[in-house]
Nucleic acid binder design. Structure first.
Lengths: 308, 308
DNA sequence: ATTTCGCATTAGCATGACTAATGCTTCCCG
DNA sequence: CGGGAAGCATTAGTCATGCTAATGCGAAAT
């Protein structure tokens, strides 16, 4: 059984200062309190830790041994507590982020770079992956913030229990095809049956974004779709679409140039385009560090979003 | 200001066990006590150490940092306390001794060897030197036991305050000269004036043992003595006496063979020979380890001395 | 929808850390 | 050499606090 740790602290001060009275001053207690504390520690440990000499104490080998154990702990503890204070009160430290591959590769780095320019003392560690990877890590305390792109599909939105969710980015999603593919397979038609018969390039075999597009524009999901390619990369999807492998859903800003030149054609209906929201997620009960706060504020300013 | 150390212990158990309830079981307190203790630690440190999730806690970086400081301390403390227990309850460990050069070089080693034969688990560290070196070290807790040869001379006996002094060895001291030297300078005379005119070989320039010899045999000390050689070595003194450099005081057992053959002659008077006592000194209030106790008992048996 | 589980909170109490006072022993100084 | 100083040990008493028992809360499991 380990002895009382506060008594070990008393022993540390007695050995370092050289006397009971000096230790009492350092600890802001009376000499009597220190004397009794040492006596109790000796009883707990079952060994004499000091020899009492006139006007002073002499540590025994056992007392010296314990001091040797406690002294490095005091040093490490002082360093640790100071570091925690510094992290809590200064704009510095590491913020661990999670983000989807696409967002984290292309959209986030410019934001981080701009932020770092204003706050060089803050560093980031970025984990790229699907929300199914990121949200558990957030839950386990391994990430401070997670960017999550959640499509408006029933059954796919994860639980927000215990989480604070803030929308930080919204982008329009469009279904596009190459000019040649559109001419051959649709010839200008926007009928649902004609569209369902086309081939598609998706991000996953289940093609949730394609089904979402149909649900949004026609209120129903096709029983089956021809997924010519599944690849979790917006750039790869765009390239496959350019090559005429089929239609694909992409953020409109990624193909704005192709749409302007007419190389790609947007498949539109009377309904507005789907909007995809990237949300920032963090643990509800976790007190954010100043670095985290500063970053979240900067995100809000860069998007003009006043979300709380 | 450092946080309460017993609360750090609570944090250690919570992180290691994974929950407040498990930590409570390990610490033999209620779950409520652990919960309150963590809350107070967070207030002391001024930073959140855990995020509260349903049915569990997640350490924050600050909590993980403190755990990283405390964990090695716990390991070292357990090792230290176990070692103290072992040293206290087993016949093992190190006994640090001090002894005069002569005694520690020739008389003590056979005693230590015999003792070690019976108690192989006990080791010794021997410091050779004058009592003026040994007694302060004893006082400072750097020696457990000190052998001290104290001549019966006023002003030279050190204070025994706070010390336990046990006589463990007694030997007769004789003043000797070579047969040739005695014939030439004394011619059998034992008159004090004739003796004072002789040359002497001493252990120190001040020759306290020579002055002690005169005080013992004639109740007065010569105003000046011719110290032909001063060397702190009994063997060196004996050799110098053999060579006729003068008279010297030596333990009688070291020259018994030379006295038998007549190579050396003892200068005697009607008074008995001086007796030199080697005493064993230790701190009065220091609880001796089992190793120390066993050694002191063995010393008593080897000398037939029943001293307490 | 109900039950389970673990953590947070509250009220109250037993106890142990602490203080004030005093005793003891050595050391210092005039 | 005697009185005062210094530091540690001890005792008696106080009160702040660590703890328990009971309960509330919120998510997860059934």
């Amino acid at each position: 059984m380990l002895p009382d740790w506060n008594r070990l602290r008393v022993l540390f001060h007695v050995v370092r200062s050289g006397s009971v009275s000096a230790a009492a001053r350092e600890l802001h207690v009376t000499q009597s309190a220190v004397s009794q504390s040492l006596a109790k520690l000796e009883a707990e440990v079952g060994a004499q830790l000091f020899v009492r000499r006139p006007r002073r104490l002499v540590p025994t080998p056992a007392g010296t041994r314990l001091f040797g154990v406690v002294a490095p702990f005091v040093e490490a503890l002082e360093g640790g507590v100071e570091e925690i204070h510094r992290a809590h009160h200064e704009l510095s430290g590491v913020v661990r982020l999670g983000a989807p591959v696409e967002f984290g590769t292309h959209r986030l780095p410019p934001l981080l770079a701009a932020f770092r320019h204003e706050h060089p003392g803050i560093r980031f560690e970025l984990t790229l992956g699907h929300p199914s990877l990121l949200l558990p890590r957030l839950d386990e305390g391994r990430l401070e913030l997670a960017f999550v792109d959640v499509f408006d599909a029933p059954g796919s939105r994860p639980s927000t229990a215990g989480l604070e969710v803030v929308e930080v980015l919204e982008e329009r999603l469009v279904l596009v095809g190459s000019r040649a593919y559109e001419a051959e397979h649709l010839a200008g038609s926007r009928a649902q049956r004609r569209l369902e018969a086309a081939s598609f390039v998706a991000y996953q075999p289940a093609a949730p974004e394609i089904r979402g597009w149909f649900r949004h524009h026609f209120d129903r999901v096709p029983a089956r779709l021809e997924i010519a390619l599944a690849v979790e990369s917006v750039q790869a999807v765009i390239e496959a679409v350019r090559l005429g492998m089929g239609l694909g859903v992409v953020p409109s800003h990624t193909v704005s140039a192709d749409l302007d030149t007419g190389a790609l054609v947007a498949i539109t209906t009377r309904r507005r385009a789907i909007r995809s929201r990237v949300t920032l997620v963090r643990l509800l009960d976790k007190v954010p560090s100043r670095a985290e706060k500063a970053f979240v504020r900067a995100l809000g300013r860069s998007r003009g979003s006043g979300a709380t």
